[in-house]
């Protein structure tokens, strides 16, 4: 275990230290006083756990392939950009474009997220990325979504569980919303359905993880209606061309 006081360290220097430690197989890295340093965990692989106190900057865990990053604070934009594997736990809210093009691993966010979250998430073989959000999400949630699973729990009962243009261009994957969403907010490529026992079983382990990370009561969360959004087909624009 290594502890680093990140206060006042330039992001490039901080990342160099982190990379060195991860590559040498350090099991736990504690980062204190992180204040906006970008690209933490970028393109790293391994089994290291990074604990972050403070607010990490944009593109945290971009291209990451393994590792667990737990943030005791809020996250900024583009967390898990094109991430391939690993786990991220945010004890707060996160900004825009979380999980852009994400292919694997999981991201758990205690509170809400910004715009354009989960755009072009995809899945491949055993890789099925998951994002679980305790609060609500902004516009363009799951746009172009091609695979994976996103769950929005709306535990603070925001008026808008998701923003507008939800699932526009969606052609794979599935979104679960605890509560309901107005049809006008949904992309025309999306079907909304009530969830069945199979869906409950599917989301159970993710919600259990969420409850364990953030100390919520599982039964209380699940004792609520959910809807599921999934795409009409894998080929939304199949008949557009002459």
């Amino acid at each position: 275990m290594k502890t680093i006081n990140a206060s006042g360290i330039y992001y490039r220097d901080l990342n160099e230290i982190i990379k060195e430690l991860v590559r040498s197989g350090e099991d736990i890295i504690n980062l204190k006083n992180v204040n906006g340093q970008r690209y933490i965990g970028d393109n790293l692989s391994g089994t290291t756990k990074i604990n972050i106190e403070g607010t990490p900057g944009n593109d945290m865990a971009a291209f990451m392939d393994g590792l667990t990053i737990e943030v005791f604070g809020n996250g900024q934009d583009a967390i898990g950009n094109t991430m391939n594997d690993g786990n991220i736990i945010i004890h707060g809210h996160a900004g825009d474009t979380v999980g852009y093009g994400m292919r694997g691993g999981s991201i758990y966010i205690k509170d809400s997220v910004g715009y354009r979250v989960g755009i072009h998430m995809k899945e491949y073989k055993d890789k099925v990325p998951v994002i679980v959000i305790g609060g609500s999400a902004g516009d363009f949630f799951g746009e172009y979504m091609a695979g994976g699973c996103m769950i929005v729990l709306n535990l603070k009962n925001d008026e808008n569980i998701v923003g507008e243009y939800c699932g526009t261009g969606m052609h794979g994957g599935v979104i679960y919303l605890r509560g309901d969403v107005e049809d006008y907010k949904l992309g025309k490529e999306v079907i909304k359905e009530k969830i069945d026992d199979k869906d409950y079983a599917f989301i159970q382990k993710y919600v259990e993880n969420f409850c364990q990370f953030f100390d919520y009561d599982f039964q209380k969360i699940m004792n609520h209606s959910f809807v599921k959004l999934h795409p009409i087909g894998k080929r939304p624009y199949g008949n557009m061309y002459a």
């Binding site: 354009r116 755009i119 491949y124 894998k234 939304p236 199949g238």
Partner: peptide
């Protein structure tokens, strides 16, 4: 192609007009 692009076979490979980030 599916293995190289890392997407399921038979699904459209759509590159959005802008990078949304």
């Amino acid at each position: 192609i599916s293995a190289t692009r890392m997407i399921p076979p038979g699904s459209d490979a759509i590159s959005p007009a802008p990078h949304h980030d």
